[in-house]
Structures are given as C-alpha cells and as structure tokens.
Amino acid sequence: MRHLHIILPIFIFSFVIFSCGEKEEYESWEKKGNTPLSSPSDLTATGAAGQVTLDWTAVSGANSYTLYWDNSTGVSSSSTAITSINTDNYTHSSLDNGTTYYYKVAAIDSAGTVGALTSEVSAATPLPAPDNLSASGANNTVTLTWNSISGATSYTLYWDNVSGIDSTDTAITSITNDNYTHSNMDNGSTYYYKVAAVNSSGTGTLSSVASALLSA
C-alpha cells in the first residue's frame, strides 16, 4: 500500500471587532494619522521687571499651546506647565526679579495630543533700580550712597561730567557695598551718576540720576 502525504498551508487570521462608535473613532484616528503637531518656530523670551514675555509662530491645526518653564535649564514636558494658551504669545508675570527663567512650548491638537516641544529659550528678569541714590561733592571727591537691593551681589556705577547717563557711560564695577567714594575728581566740575544692582542673571535697572558739584 502506498501512502500519499499532502502538506497544506496553514493560514492564521486575526480579527478586530469594533462597535459602531469604536469603528468611527478608529477611522477618524486613522485618517488623521495620529501624527503629533510640529513644534512652534521662532520662540523668543524677553525679560522685564517681574515678568517674561514670550512669542512664537502659530502652528496650523493647533487648538491651544502649553508652555513649560523652570528657573534652571533643562526644561521638559515634566516641568511646570501653563496650559490652555489660546494665542501665540504669553506674558509670564509675578516672577522674582534678578532671576533667569527657561521655557519650551508645544502645540496641542483638538484631541489633546501634545506636539513636539520647541528648543529652549531663556530670559532674565532684571533686579530693580536702587532707590535714593545721592551724591555729595567735596574736595576732589564725590561720595555716593543708595539703598541696597535684595539679591544683589554687587553694584555698577555709571558716571560722566555731562548729563544723560546710561549704561554706555564709564562704569565702575564690582562695588560690594551700598556706597562709593569717587576720588581724584576735578574741583569746579559737576558729575552725574546712576547705579545698578548686579547678580548672576545680569545687570539690573538703572537708578534715577544724581549729581554733585565740586567747589573750586
């Protein structure tokens, strides 16, 4: 007796059964491709007293934006989040002066999916201007005093013998007290001054001007 061996191919079928609602949801998801939105471009951050203003380019298809931030570098999606931003800009207020803040932003689609994060940007909120700058002239010297600023590590004094002092004028840096004696000055001349507090985030806002006339 001869035996005939026949090898038949084996087919394995997999079925997914949807309810009507699930089928519609799946088809909608499939059509969208489930692709996260791209990251917003041109993110910028500008610091001012107590706040940072952020701007970015809008992303097509974005329903809102989420802003992630911290006061140290390395911002990620696990950082503190400001959600439901409906414009392509945001002013982050009530911040500490003299601090650098770091940011990333992501677009959110209508399903709530978080898109790609931008590159990180940063901005510093400047220290406030020292109050009550005063200048007193004596023989060849001007003595200056001002109110100290919390968080300042030093002060920079700007001066000239003409009015209109700003940060481009001659600077005396690394002053560690809230006073300074400016010596070897010319009697009979008037000198003008502004002072700014300094810390690791940079130079703060300049004070009001003070002046002193040295008697001849």
Rank of each mutant, 00 (worst) to 15 (best):
M1N: 04
R2W: 04
H3W: 11
H5C: 09
L8D: 01
P9Q: 07
I10Y: 01
F11K: 03
F11R: 03
I12R: 03
F13M: 07
F13I: 11
F15D: 12
I17Y: 00
F18H: 14
K23W: 05
E24S: 07
E24L: 15
Y26E: 08
Y26D: 06
Y26G: 06
E27W: 02
N34R: 09
T35V: 11
S38E: 14
D42G: 09
A45Q: 10
G47I: 02
D55F: 01
G61M: 10
G61P: 00
G61L: 09
A62Y: 02
N63A: 14
S64H: 06
S64D: 14
Y65R: 02
N71W: 03
N71R: 12
S72K: 13
S72H: 07
G74R: 03
V75F: 00
S77M: 08
T80F: 02
I82D: 05
T87N: 15
Y90T: 04
S93A: 15
L95T: 11
L95S: 09
L95C: 08
D96G: 09
G98W: 00
T99W: 01
Y101E: 05
K104R: 11
V105I: 14
V105W: 06
A106P: 13
I108G: 01
G112H: 01
G112A: 11
V114A: 14
G115H: 03
G115E: 03
S119Y: 06
E120W: 00
P126A: 08
L127D: 04
P130S: 09
D131R: 08
N132M: 07
N132W: 09
N132A: 07
L133S: 03
N139F: 04
N140A: 12
T141F: 02
T141Y: 03
T141Q: 09
V142F: 00
L144R: 02
L144F: 04
W146I: 06
N147R: 03
I149N: 02
S150M: 09
G151I: 07
T156C: 13
L157C: 10
L157W: 02
W159Q: 02
N161V: 07
V162M: 11
G164M: 13
I165D: 05
D166C: 03
D166T: 07
S167R: 12
T168Y: 06
D169R: 11
T170K: 05
I172H: 00
T173Y: 01
S174T: 08
T176Y: 10
N177A: 15
D178C: 13
D178S: 15
N179Y: 10
Y180E: 08
T181H: 13
H182R: 03
T190V: 12
T190R: 01
K194T: 14
V195S: 09
A196R: 02
N199K: 10
G202K: 06
G202W: 05
T203P: 04
T203M: 05
G204S: 04
G204N: 02
T205I: 15
S207K: 05
S207M: 08
S208E: 12
A210Q: 09
S211R: 12
A216L: 12
